[in-house]
Design a protein around this nucleic acid. Structure first.
Lengths: 334, 334
DNA sequence: TTGTATGCGTTATCAT
DNA sequence: ATGATAACGCATACAA
């Protein structure tokens, strides 16, 4: 830094403690001196050193966010980026900055626990639940280090998540309301955290409608375009009476649509189709897909809010927020 | 911080300066003491305070990256996220952290110049050229503040960018090589920085092939699905002899494909189609699109490298890097 | 090879 | 209402 608080103090013929008080707008400084010193600060183009401030206040005014960039799947990227945007939108106005740290590159060198947490490089951390090991979580709890998990978390930490069970329920219910009687569920694998919740929602909706569950309607597989195509071929060729489908992803749904087209199955005349995630394909398939929109920006906002709350109240009891997804109806369901 | 360097010094019965030297692995400390003190540090679970280190070293070891999150267009998000990943992949291993700052929220409060630059909260900045005003750029030059622009920049700053002219050239040339003789260029508007470069590449490729340029083949318009549809209708209904198209975006191309389908124009039999950007639609349209892939992760890497170079050599003469896009051939061109 | 003293630029406490 | 001074935790030039 060029000009320091001392320079200002000298120029104004006051002690630097006075200048400091002016900056914090202390009521114990006369308005006259405030004006005078502020003018000098402007004139001398003074900006306090953030490094010094941070050390003195024992706070970095920095929030860390852990991401995993090994997954080069672009659609995930868009989600994370939105989360980042959401977090920033709440911490930014509170004069906190956002530090993005990639777990990938912590493999060899010091981990994020060292780089961010123990060194106090950030005042708090937001991280996807998959990236939080039990050990690290425990240590942060022990250090009373503010932490918010994105994704339901078993440990005693704050978390925010979308209601995936509810999502499965909503899509299934929508199909039933449109007259479907045998609804299939395709993509994903039993044991996946997303899968299990969404599948449960699917089954709950069937039960609620008094419809028995048929194992033939459920196909596991990779939830991408290729997987969707294959599962659709299986599902539609068996002469099954399926009249509605819930897909684990819009990529799988795109594959399904391609298969249906090839097999002469018309959507939505012969088959109604729904999928999780609006982005990126749902609006552009033919026909466009009825889908469930997950607003990850909102997720970031909630995570940020929760963390800031925790920051100002260390005794904040453990909290969690379950956000509701939004149904977007398009031609694939009539 | 709980345990400080002083605590370690006490426990080891040495001066804290000795401990400091051990941490930097100074050759002037005996191996014996090094081992002994390191053991104590481990045992006492010591991690140096980053705040204190930063103040003492007069460096935040932080790189700032400016983004504009007002644009809620998801596909842009994926690009930016990849840039972030690229930057992080080079600065992370060098023990720098990445600070993401959103210009949007700097509207009212202090600007990023105040929050990041003048306060020295970051040691250097990476920002998209559209976000850099002449004033701010000038001030950073004046402060000798390390800056790398993403996107060609007129000012005397370091920058990295993709070669958009070359991109326009490549797509056009590809069509010509596939036998097209009248190639159209649709989407975007004269004056746009991307447009002008890409369009120039298109014209250059035509010239190089000795083909005259026909203004009827060039349609301006929004480069989204709707715009693409409209432009295609205009282009294809006029009984024009266009046999190949370069689209400014894969969204526009998707619209074009929809229009072609409706008008009975077959792709690629009657018309070859190419587009800028692989992500997100190009692989999923029918037929899948031949397109130009822009690896934004790579862009981030180059930006990061350039900045780190500048950081270690303040006298580094102004540099720029122009990256070459990659042609991905799919069914839309046969 | 290790220790002493000072600086880094603030904030905060306690006098005055 | 303002000033002197001690933290904050580490790095470093200079002594020993």
């Amino acid at each position: 830094m060029r000009v320091t608080i001392q320079d200002i103090a000298n120029a104004a013929n006051v002690a630097k403690s006075t200048v400091s008080k002016v900056m914090s707008d202390s009521p114990r400084i006369s308005d006259a001196t405030k004006q005078r010193i502020r003018a000098i600060m402007r004139e001398m183009n003074y900006t306090p050193s953030s490094l010094a401030t941070q050390l003195a206040r024992q706070s970095s005014f920095n929030i860390g966010m852990l991401v995993d960039m090994t997954q080069r799947e672009d659609f995930l990227n868009a989600f994370f980026y939105n989360i980042i945007g959401g977090v920033e939108s709440v911490i930014g106005p509170l004069s906190y900055e956002l530090t993005i740290s990639n777990v990938q590159y912590h493999q060899n060198g010091p981990s994020y626990m060292e780089r961010l947490v123990r060194s106090r490089r950030v005042d708090g951390l937001i991280a996807s639940s998959e990236l939080l090991t039990a050990d690290n979580t425990a240590e942060m709890m022990d250090l009373e280090f503010p932490l918010v998990s994105i994704g339901e978390n078993g440990s005693n930490v704050h978390w925010v998540d979308y209601d995936n069970r509810r999502g499965g329920y909503m899509l299934t219910e929508h199909l039933l309301l449109r007259g479907c009687s045998s609804v299939a569920f395709i993509g994903g694998h039993v044991g996946g955290s997303l899968y299990d919740k969404r599948f449960r929602g699917y089954r709950d909706a069937l039960s609620a409608a008094g419809i028995g569950f048929n194992p033939d309607w459920v196909l596991e597989g990779t939830a991408d375009e290729h997987g969707g195509y294959d599962m659709a071929v299986t599902l539609l060729s068996e002469g099954s009476r399926t009249d509605g489908v819930v897909c684990m992803s819009n990529y799988a749904a795109a594959g399904l649509l391609r298969a249906a087209d090839k097999l002469g199955v018309r959507v939505p005349q012969d088959l109604l189709v729904t999928a999780f995630d609006d982005y990126p394909l749902s609006a552009f398939t033919s026909p466009p897909l009825t889908c469930l929109h997950i607003d990850t920006f909102e997720l970031g906002i909630e995570a940020g809010r929760l963390l800031m709350q925790r920051l100002s109240d260390p005794a904040l009891p453990r909290q969690s927020r379950l956000l509701e997804p939004k149904l977007i109806v398009r031609e694939s369901t009539g």
